Deep mutational scan, measured.
Amino acid sequence: MLDDRARMEAAKKEKVEQILAEFQLQEEDLKKVMRRMQKEMDRGLRLETHEEASVKMLPTYVRSTPEGSEVGDFLSLDLGGTNFRVMLVKVGEGEEGQWSVKTKHQMYSIPEDAMTGTAEMLFDYISECISDFLDKHQMKHKKLPLGFTFSFPVRHEDIDKGILLNWTKGFKASGAEGNNVVGLLRDAIKRRGDFEMDVVAMVNDTVATMISCYYEDHQCEVGMIVGTGCNACYMEEMQNVELVEGDEGRMCVNTEWGAFGDSGELDEFLLEYDRLVDESSANPGQQLYEKLIGGKYMGELVRLVLLRLVDENLLFHGEASEQLRTRGAFETRFVSQVESDTGDRKQIYNILSTLGLRPSTTDCDIVRRACESVSTRAAHMCSAGLAGVINRMRESRSEDVMRITVGVDGSVYKLHPSFKERFHASVRRLTPSCEITFIESEEGSGRGAALVSAVACKKACMLGQ
């Protein structure tokens, strides 16, 4: 009897593995994704193909990295998701002549009506938060230079001027797309009239992360975010950046690689679950690469896999709870928690219980395998993109072996128990001629924006502006 049951459990697990095998990517698959990513990057950089390229390769006008001589107080704003952060950054000489960066910050959550109302409502709310922060720190009387981390696709015309191309991540505030974001912020500050600010720089969160990590390690020339969304930036040779005049030196390019796949480059790798996630998203047909990796989508992918296993009578005796059938019910943090389970399955059992399920031991094991399959594919897909960037940098610099540091931020990278190990191992397999160091950014977005502002202020002083 026991043997029969054991055989049935083994057969069930084997069927589960057959279904989950769809998520496995072979090294040849990853090399294919990497080569296609490089081709799209090239198209994004070139003037004649930029418009139709899915990977936009947006110039950021960040050319210099901090040298350690900029000092002063800077205000930093960070808008990239449902939370908005205001930070005071003091850049100065530390002990023994070292450079020191001290920060104080406060988080504000953005109400739904500000995210989806008008641009005026959104930026009025942001300036209200700045006003509140300055009151708390008794700094209303000071006109501070301000660095703005704005983590949406922007076409820069200068370091302090950028046109919002399109909202992502659930934002829909009308009247912002096609307009200068810094102008919208300046107008809102003017409307309030109770404080003055000098907006000197606007950067993407990947750029802010790279600059913040450069402060720790001067070989950091790539910034990457794996959180709600997924994106990367890197220092490109100016001669390859056709959208900006000049051939000397390097400029940081914001790849906006989340949109890779929007022209069909990933079609052969998309599964039924991916198509369902895409169809029910706020932007169907867009940001397809990001939807395979980002935390906004990972939990939902797992939920759809679990429903398939229920329908195949391989999980929960073929019956799903009402909660499990509800879109968004299986949160991405559950994926991390399930994979963090120590082996007694308590954590998995508790999560499934909150979803109205009474799982068996085998159910718990199957749910864990589903989570591992989805998150491992995410790590491997992400590795193909980064390997594409790094191999490109090595080739354009004609280096036999390139040493490089990548600064990384984002909740999936930082909080998932195995993502970074799987990701690092896969990147290294795909970049055999590179020695890569990964560092995690601390308060990256805010500190990085302030350091970019410090560079901009120093330049302005040198130019006598």
Rank of each mutant, 00 (worst) to 15 (best):
195 F>G: 03
308 R>F: 12
36 R>C: 05
281 S>L: 11
3 D>V: 06
26 Q>D: 13
227 G>P: 04
7 R>A: 15
370 A>Y: 00
239 Q>T: 14
180 N>G: 06
76 S>M: 02
323 Q>M: 10
447 R>V: 13
188 A>T: 02
200 V>K: 00
106 Q>W: 05
225 I>Q: 02
435 E>D: 11
276 L>G: 08
160 D>G: 11
184 L>W: 04
277 V>I: 14
54 S>A: 09
354 T>W: 09
169 K>R: 12
49 T>F: 05
275 R>C: 10
304 L>H: 10
237 E>S: 06
428 R>M: 12
60 T>K: 00
330 F>K: 00
114 A>Q: 15
97 G>T: 12
62 V>K: 00
427 V>P: 00
197 M>V: 02
17 E>L: 14
15 K>G: 13
71 V>I: 04
317 H>C: 05
392 R>V: 12
296 K>H: 07
221 E>N: 12
141 H>N: 04
32 K>Y: 02
110 I>G: 06
108 Y>F: 08
142 K>E: 07
384 A>P: 05
229 G>N: 15
303 R>S: 05
451 L>F: 09
171 F>V: 12
430 L>G: 03
316 F>E: 13
260 F>N: 00
135 D>L: 05
347 Q>T: 08
9 E>A: 07
2 L>V: 05
36 R>V: 06
156 H>G: 13
292 L>E: 07
315 L>F: 07
33 V>N: 06
146 L>Y: 08
372 E>H: 07
405 T>L: 01
375 S>T: 03
187 D>T: 13
245 E>P: 00
226 V>S: 04
348 I>Y: 04
421 E>V: 08
233 C>R: 00
404 I>L: 07
260 F>A: 03
337 Q>E: 09
303 R>N: 01
17 E>D: 08
231 N>V: 05
269 F>K: 05
314 L>Q: 08
113 D>K: 12
90 K>L: 04
134 L>W: 02
112 E>G: 07
164 L>P: 15
450 A>G: 14
365 D>P: 02
124 D>Q: 10
343 G>A: 05
385 G>E: 12
411 S>T: 08
293 I>W: 13
221 E>Y: 03
92 G>A: 05
97 G>L: 09
69 S>M: 11
386 L>W: 00
262 D>A: 12
363 D>W: 02
65 T>F: 07
175 G>W: 05
92 G>H: 03
398 S>W: 05
237 E>F: 11
95 E>L: 11
381 M>V: 10
14 E>Y: 09
384 A>L: 11
154 V>W: 11
59 P>F: 00
184 L>C: 08
13 K>G: 12
162 G>N: 06
331 E>T: 15
329 A>C: 15
54 S>T: 15
103 T>G: 03
96 E>N: 07
234 Y>V: 05
453 S>N: 14
321 S>A: 10
41 M>F: 10
296 K>M: 11
464 G>F: 13
193 G>E: 07
149 T>D: 07
246 G>M: 08
74 F>R: 00
79 L>H: 04
40 E>T: 07
117 G>H: 04
406 V>H: 00
5 R>Q: 13
88 L>I: 04
5 R>K: 15
223 G>H: 00
317 H>F: 14
143 K>Q: 08
374 V>M: 06
463 L>K: 14
437 T>S: 08
26 Q>C: 09
53 A>C: 11
276 L>P: 08
183 G>N: 06
211 I>T: 03
86 V>L: 09
312 E>H: 12
313 N>V: 09
168 T>W: 13
426 S>G: 10
160 D>F: 06
171 F>T: 12
120 E>C: 07
321 S>I: 10
450 A>L: 14
410 G>F: 15
62 V>A: 02
327 R>P: 14
18 Q>V: 10
219 Q>T: 15
111 P>E: 07
369 R>G: 02
342 T>H: 04
265 E>K: 15
382 C>H: 09
109 S>M: 13
273 Y>C: 05
309 L>I: 02
68 G>Q: 05
178 G>S: 14
348 I>M: 03
228 T>D: 02
85 R>A: 11
454 A>I: 11
177 E>V: 10
311 D>A: 10
233 C>Q: 00
62 V>Y: 00
53 A>R: 14
295 G>V: 13
40 E>G: 03
208 A>V: 04
398 S>C: 07
195 F>H: 04
141 H>C: 07
109 S>H: 05
111 P>F: 06
462 M>D: 08
345 R>C: 06
338 V>F: 01
431 T>K: 06
115 M>Q: 08
82 T>F: 09
60 T>C: 09
110 I>S: 07
5 R>P: 08
42 D>N: 14
361 T>H: 15
144 L>E: 02
81 G>V: 13
191 R>T: 04
271 L>Y: 02
264 G>T: 13
115 M>S: 10
53 A>V: 04
301 L>Y: 12
373 S>F: 02
249 G>D: 01
438 F>P: 02
91 V>C: 07
428 R>W: 09
315 L>Y: 02
464 G>S: 12
392 R>P: 04
389 V>K: 02
445 S>W: 13
218 H>I: 11
36 R>T: 03
439 I>S: 08
451 L>N: 11
269 F>P: 03
93 E>G: 07
37 M>D: 00
145 P>F: 00
96 E>A: 11
419 F>A: 03
199 V>A: 06
234 Y>I: 04
39 K>M: 07
413 Y>E: 07
252 C>V: 07
74 F>M: 05
226 V>H: 02
315 L>A: 11
374 V>S: 01
79 L>E: 03
209 T>G: 01
122 L>E: 04
288 L>W: 15
123 F>A: 07
376 T>V: 10
371 C>S: 03
63 R>K: 04
185 L>N: 02
254 N>C: 03
250 R>C: 11
34 M>Q: 09
